[in-house]
Nucleic acid binder design. Structure first.
Length: 892
RNA sequence: GCGCGCUUAGCUCAGCGGUAGAGCGCUUGCUUCACACGCAAGAAGUCACAGGUUCGAACCCUGUAGCGCGCACCA
């Protein structure tokens, strides 16, 4: 085996192993291998935007999925991690359109026309579509690339059409002219979920309108949107409002638009319960074409609907000469000027309100009446029930409540978009005829609906459409429903809820059993990562600098279940340091030589060996449990503690005593324990850090223990470590008392190091220690370990009678008093001060315990076990106190 | 307005009924033959606040404040 380099060089290792895994088909799922003994495990990737680039959010999300997939393989499952990309309608179309404009190819997409423009989008997709996939590979994602899907693949598109047709035939999809959220920039309708409310500093304008039938009587109206006054078709008051009730049925004179004949300016005063008399002036202007609530009022009262705006947010001719052609915000200013000129503007006051914004274009949406396609959600009851009844689990489970609330108040989904990039609505028209089908109808003269479908209308089919539905493929039969879904809580409604409904509706079953919601990655100031803030580091840079494993480990370590992740490059650095530590521990093992298959000889096991085997066992159990509960940061914390503190700091240092001994059996047993622990550790680490563990798995030769026919002896297929069985414990003669003994010796070491510190002796300087435990109490090996770890030269064992020179520093340990004889440096007063301080501490602790025990309330009511613990504690402190006092007396 | 979450060491977070923990940062030693991306030792906390339950509360209950998120929304 070639000697390992001094530091780990991730780049070449990562590239080499990823290529090897691909070549050996390690990621390919084989449905034919699924059986009772080899259960299926599946997960579908949340498809990233096809033209997107990798962000830290993707790193978090996909590392989690990779950990789950890799661990499932090690548990002997047949794993399918199905990857792919999303066409991301608006996002992609916007990017391509903007780029073409920048390049001067077009001024507007209409310059090219639908077909030509789509050609450009496909060109763009072919050019940039592979980027994020390549980046996921850099991260080490073990996706089954042979099954990669794209939401605009021909087969996938057929699924989308088929689903549309089926829902149409069931009467769940319908077309209607309704109020929708309109984005004046993207020029398309949006779903309710694509609108986010933002607080705005607006102005509330109060203006007067005169009652036509009662000249001199004015109604004052409060509004934030004076520019849509030309669209007002009524003024509403609450019929119970005594101030205004008598005016119902009369009319007011609308001040805008100007230049209309007087009779056309009259609009009715109506009574409607919707009007809140507390708010504003208690008089509401009703603008049915530009406000959702007003539209409903208009329907109740059969009011005309006057749309005064163009699709792009500019005012149309109906807004009148003074406003026509102006952008809605300019128009607002002009409208205010007009009101002022007319002398009817009473008041302007600053006002904070919430305005719906288009999530994508980041501009206020415009409520707009238009002809759109809507879906009445299917399988709502089942979808609600499966989460409520716990058949599908959410992690953390508080999201179940959010889901439930949304499902309870679910409203029809506007699924049509006035875009070009996407799945075309599979509906054709000819005269009065309408045809809905997967393929175009026979005969001439049919024209297809020009709208495309909301991107999520394809994404919601992802779990089964990617597996070949509607064909009954092997993949679908074996891997659906999927096991886990890993995604962000921000798309719980956009995607998760809808997939659950589609799963029930088309597969008759839930699409996944567990949903893990990641946190959102934030910067150190707690802000979301975003391109515009420039606070989002490029994961590829981090991989280049620290290695993919370091990035993965660092991110997982800082991402506890249920909380947002504060990103700090320090964490990645920590991951890099950890990789180096692992690498160097492996190097240490390699430098000892010897074959790795050296067998453990139970009778040769030292207390240290048994101790580390028990710590390993504990780590195996903890990591396993943490992963079962999706507590990834807990798993990394355990791995870190076990490997760094327990294995490297204690065991590996202690093992040096055995490794330099003349006893061959001891030597080879120690090597065997090192190998046992390392090979288990590598496997525990593998899901988190796939590259370095594979490299060391081969570098240390552990791969040789695997059957040659199993996919190239990769650690990917090595068995996940199991806790020790009772038989194994018995065979190796391991029991908790050995752990305690080892621990006690380590306490001696700590005490010795403490003495060094107190007396300013460098940790590396070899000095004489005396342990008053009686000769022959320790085995030769245990003694050698203590000597090594204390850097003692020598460590003498003495009887209780042994007297040190007065003022010799001494520390209490579970194995006896540890003395540090200082030749010529004895300072009795310094030691007296030190002991006095120790005594004060002990007395304080003893006092606390005694006070509790003296409390009859405590002693009478506490469970016996707790009482016993306190008694034990009291005894220990009392003993210590006595010993310290004796030491102080000895000082004279 | 309704709901959810958070508040523990300078920073990021564990702990969720029985003596306050980790990593980073900080301090002090150390070129100890795997590793200075390291080793060793150390300082550092009225566990947001106020009540309550309990023998005992960071942990359970009630309320308050601050921060964050979701839903709804009155022009």
């Amino acid at each position: 085996m070639p000697e390992l380099a001094k530091t780990y060089e991730p780049a070449s290792v990562e590239e080499r192993w990823y290529a090897a895994w691909l070549e050996q088909g390690c990621f390919t799922a084989r449905p034919e291998r699924v059986s009772d003994q080899r259960p299926a495990y599946s997960i579908v990737i949340p498809p990233p935007n096809v033209t997107g680039v990798l962000t830290l959010g993707h790193v978090l999300n996909n590392t989690i999925q990779d950990i789950l997939a890799r661990r499932a393989r090690m548990l002997g499952k047949e794993v399918l991690w199905l990857p792919g990309t999303d066409h991301a309608g608006i996002a992609t179309q916007t990017v391509v359109e903007r780029t073409l404009k920048k390049q001067g190819v077009i001024r507007h997409r209409d310059d090219l026309g639908r077909e030509k423009f789509l050609e450009k989008v496909w060109e763009w997709k072919d050019k940039h579509g592979g980027i994020i996939i390549q980046q996921l590979k850099k991260l080490g994602a073990s996706c089954d690339w042979s099954r990669e899907r794209f939401t605009m693949d021909p087969e996938y598109s057929r699924c989308v059409s088929q689903v549309f047709v089926e829902l149409y035939k069931k009467g769940l999809i319908y077309r209607g002219k309704r109020m929708v959220n309109w984005c004046p920039v993207s020029l398309t309708a949006l779903s309710d979920e694509e609108v986010t409310m933002k607080p705005q500093n607006s102005t509330m304008f109060h203006f007067r309108e005169e009652v036509a039938e009662l000249p001199g009587t004015w109604l004052t109206i409060a509004t934030t949107r004076p520019e849509v006054i030309p669209g007002d078709t009524a003024v509403a008051v609450n019929p119970k409002d005594e101030r205004y009730a008598h005016l119902i049925g009369k009319h007011v004179i609308r001040p805008l638009p100007v230049n209309l004949p007087a009779d056309q300016k009259l609009i009715p005063i109506i009574g409607d319960e919707h009007v809140d008399f507390e708010f504003g002036t208690g008089v509401l202007k009703v603008t049915p074409a530009h406000d959702m609530a007003d539209f409903e009022i208009a329907q109740r009262h059969n009011l005309p609907v006057i749309d005064v705006m163009n699709p792009d947010g500019t005012m149309n001719a109906l807004a009148g000469e003074s406003l026509v052609g102006l952008d809605r915000f300019e128009a607002r200013n002009v409208a205010v000027d007009r009101l002022r000129e007319l002398g009817v503007l009473d008041k302007e006051e600053p006002y904070q309100n919430n305005v719906g914004y288009s999530e994508r274009a980041d501009v206020p949406i415009e409520p707009r009446l238009s002809e759109q396609w809507f879906l009445k959600y299917p399988s709502v009851a089942e979808s609600k029930a499966c989460v409520a009844e716990g058949r599908m689990k959410f992690f953390p489970d508080r999201w179940a409540k959010v889901y439930d609330h949304w499902m309870e108040n679910i409203r029809d989904w506007c699924i049509s978009r006035q875009l070009w990039w996407g799945h075309r609505v599979p509906v054709w028209y000819r005269g009065d005829e309408t045809y809905c089908g997967i393929d175009a109808p026979e005969g001439d003269g049919w024209t297809q609906d020009t709208d495309v479908l909301d991107t999520w209308f394809s994404s919601w089919l992802w779990p089964f459409a990617t597996m070949g539905w509607p064909e009954k493929t092997d993949t679908l039969a074996k891997f659906y429903p999927t096991t886990d879904l890993v995604t962000g809580p921000d798309i719980i409604f956009f995607w998760v809820a809808r997939m659950i409904m589609a799963g029930h509706e088309f597969m008759g079953e839930l699409p996944f059993r567990n949903v893990y919601f990641t946190g959102i990655i934030r910067d150190k100031q707690g802000r979301k990562m975003s391109k515009s803030l420039g606070n989002s580091p490029d994961p590829l840079d981090l991989i280049a600098k620290f290695g993919a494993d370091a990035l993965r480990f660092g991110v997982m370590r800082s991402a506890p279940l249920g909380t947002d992740v504060t990103y700090d490059e320090k964490n990645v650095e920590l991951g890099r340091n950890f990789c180096t530590k692992l690498w160097n521990a492996a190097r240490f093992r390699q430098m000892q030589g010897g074959e790795h298959e050296a067998e453990i000889i139970p009778r040769m096991l030292t207390a240290d060996d048994k101790w580390i085997l028990l710590q390993l066992d504990r780590a195996v159990q903890e990591v396993t449990r943490a992963l079962e509960q999706y507590r990834f940061s807990d798993a990394t914390a355990t791995l870190y503690r076990f490997f760094w503190s327990e294995f490297c700091d204690w065991y590996l240092e202690a093992s040096k005593a055995a490794l330099t001994s003349d006893d061959d059996a001891r030597r080879s047993t120690t090597l065997a324990v090192l190998d046992f622990v390392l090979s288990h550790t590598l496997r525990l680490f593998h899901p988190f850090m796939p590259f370095i563990t594979e490299e060391l798995w081969h570098g240390l030769g552990y791969c040789d223990d695997m059957p040659a026919d199993q996919g190239g002896r990769t650690i990917m297929n090595a068995p996940w470590p199991k806790p020790l069985t009772n038989d194994e414990r018995h065979y190796m003669d391991i029991d908790p008392s050995h752990e305690e003994f080892a621990q006690q010796r380590y306490e001696v070491v700590n005490a010795g190091r403490g003495l060094r510190r107190d007396f300013n002796i460098a940790s590396s300087k070899r000095v004489r220690f005396v342990l008053r435990c009686g000769a022959g109490y320790l085995t030769e090996h245990d003694h050698a370990v203590l000597e090594l770890l204390l850097a003692a030269d020598p460590l003498d064992l003495a009887d209780a009678e042994w007297q040190a020179p007065k003022g010799t520093p001494v520390a209490l340990t579970p194995l006896g008093e540890l003395l540090l004889p200082l030749e010529g440096l004895i300072d009795a007063s310094a030691e007296r001060d030190r002991l006095t301080k120790e005594i004060a501490k002990v007395e304080q602790e003893l006092g606390k315990v005694r006070a509790k025990l003296a409390d009859t309330n405590f002693a009478g009511k506490v469970p016996p076990q707790v009482l016993a613990e306190h008694r034990q504690r009291e005894e220990t402190w009392a003993q210590k106190l006595e010993q310290f006092q004796r030491m102080l007396e000895a000082l004279g």
